[in-house]
Amino acid sequence: MKPATRLPLALAILSAVATNAVANGPADFMLRATIDGQRVEGQPLAWTDSQMLLLGRDGQLHDFHPKEAKDAKKIAKGFVAYSPAQLKGRLQQEFDRSYAVTTTQHFVVVHPRGEWSAWANRLESLYRSFTHYMSVRGFPIKRPKMPLVAVVFRNQADYYRYAAADGTPLAPGTLGHYSPQSNRVFLFDISGGSGDADWLANAETIIHEATHQTAYNTGVHQRFSEQPRWLVEGLAMMFEAPGVWGASSIKGIETRLNQGRLQDFRNSIAGSTSDWIMRTVASDNEFSRSPGASYAAAWTLSFYLCETRPEEYSRYLDRVSRREQFTTYGSKQRVADFAAEFGNDFTLLDAQVQRFVSELPR
Results as ranks from 00 to 15, higher is better:
14 L>N: 12
16 A>Y: 10
19 T>F: 13
20 N>I: 02
21 A>N: 11
22 V>M: 12
22 V>F: 14
23 A>Q: 11
25 G>P: 01
27 A>L: 05
28 D>Y: 04
32 R>K: 15
33 A>C: 09
33 A>H: 02
34 T>G: 00
37 G>N: 06
44 P>V: 01
46 A>W: 00
48 T>G: 09
49 D>P: 13
50 S>P: 01
52 M>V: 15
59 G>T: 01
61 L>D: 01
64 F>Y: 15
89 G>D: 10
89 G>R: 08
92 Q>Y: 00
96 D>T: 13
101 V>P: 01
106 H>P: 01
107 F>I: 11
107 F>A: 04
118 A>Y: 14
122 R>L: 15
124 E>K: 09
126 L>G: 10
128 R>S: 14
144 P>F: 06
149 V>M: 03
160 Y>N: 13
161 R>H: 12
163 A>E: 04
164 A>R: 14
166 D>N: 07
169 P>T: 00
169 P>W: 01
170 L>Q: 03
178 Y>Q: 02
179 S>A: 05
180 P>N: 09
181 Q>E: 09
186 F>Y: 14
189 D>H: 05
225 S>K: 05
232 V>F: 00
234 G>R: 03
249 S>H: 06
251 K>P: 01
253 I>V: 15
259 Q>T: 09
260 G>L: 10
263 Q>P: 03
271 G>Y: 08
276 W>Y: 03
279 R>H: 11
291 P>M: 06
301 L>A: 02
302 S>K: 00
312 E>N: 14
312 E>V: 00
317 L>I: 06
319 R>H: 13
332 K>T: 12
335 V>G: 00
338 F>K: 02
339 A>P: 08
341 E>Q: 14
349 L>D: 06
350 D>I: 02
354 Q>P: 02
359 E>M: 14
361 P>V: 10
